[in-house]
């Protein structure tokens, strides 16, 4: 019975020595905290807070009202309207496709399910410029679907349709992924319970499934909104940024910078930045709510 006594003693001395060293340890702890925090704040300052502040100062310098007033020019208004229409369509389409697609991928078994699952995730991994190029190769003069373009008369390259297709491509994953994740987490038992209680498929969907995924869907749609408003590379390549025709809010900024129209560039950038801050706070709210309890 000697062993436990020794180890207990050992523990006591260890605790005692720990207390003894507590003062020194505390200093070390504060030092470490300080060091890590400084690194992190310098990092965030250099890439996030600093640039954000600089933008604010610059805007104050240029004059917020002047900057916004420049958006009343016809081509700026046109670009804004184009972005709004594209975003609206992207949100509506993704609400439907994301929900149905997630249900199919998570709840159903069919041939090609794994492929759809993988494809739906891909747009996040591909450079926007390549997306634009890929669609040019598909719908361009020598493309596989050029016959379709001639037959229907619907132009894609350097046309509004191209902007839409590019926007739909880059926004595909957001709702589908979010909704699929929550469906997986929640499981099927509530839906089964509804079935045993006499609910039909539509009743199950609208009264059980949809309420359960609503915050995930909302989060996905906010991301869709942010991405379609902010998409630049794909719409630039496929749309060509033709003023008054295929220019969106972002390609408008690009063109304004190239033409040294700093005022209009900052005006549009301010509008987009404000929108994204608004979006960000909605995103944070939806993120808290979408967690499965």
């Amino acid at each position: 019975m000697a062993e436990p006594a020794v180890s207990a003693l050992d523990q006591v001395t260890r605790v005692a020595s720990r207390d003894h060293a507590a003062a020194g340890l505390l200093d070390g702890q504060i030092l470490r905290r300080g060091a890590i925090s400084s690194v992190v704040f310098i990092y965030l300052g250099a890439i996030l807070l600093g640039p954000l502040a600089a933008m604010g100062v610059e805007l104050a310098h240029v004059g917020v009202l002047d900057a916004l007033r420049s958006l009343l020019a016809p081509d700026a208004l046109f670009a804004l309207r184009t972005s709004l229409v594209l975003t609206t369509i992207a949100v509506v389409v993704n609400a439907v496709v994301g929900t149905l697609g997630a249900i199919a991928v998570v709840r159903q078994r069919f041939l090609g399910r794994a492929l759809v699952n993988a494809l739906a995730d891909l747009p996040l991994a591909i450079s926007p410029v390549m997306i634009g190029l890929a669609f040019i190769l598909l719908f361009g003069r020598e493309g596989w679907l050029s016959a379709l373009v001639t037959a229907t008369g619907i132009k894609v390259v350097f046309a509004w349709t191209g902007l839409l297709i590019a926007t739909l491509f880059v926004t595909l994953p957001f709702t589908l992924r979010e909704v699929a994740y929550v469906l997986e987490e929640i499981g099927t038992s509530e839906e089964e319970a509804a079935a045993t209680l006499g609910a039909g498929p539509w009743q199950i969907f609208f009264r059980v499934t949809l309420p359960n995924i609503r915050f995930a869907l909302g989060y996905g749609l906010l991301m869709t909104l942010a991405r379609s408003l902010g998409e630049f590379g794909a719409v630039l390549v496929l749309g060509g940024s033709i003023s008054g025709q295929t220019q969106t809010a972002t390609t408008f900024i690009h063109a304004a910078i190239e033409e040294r129209q700093t005022g209009s560039a900052y005006g549009m950038a301010l509008l987009l930045a404000l929108t994204s801050v608004l979006l960000l706070s909605s995103l944070e709210w939806a993120k808290r709510r979408k967690k499965v309890k």
Binding site: E190, A193, A195, T196, G200
Partner: peptide, 19 residues
Amino acid sequence: HARMRGVGFVFQHYALFRH
């Protein structure tokens, strides 16, 4: 079909509608 059976089912983890 389950919904036509008139059977009440109590699930192991209750499966209450959380919303």
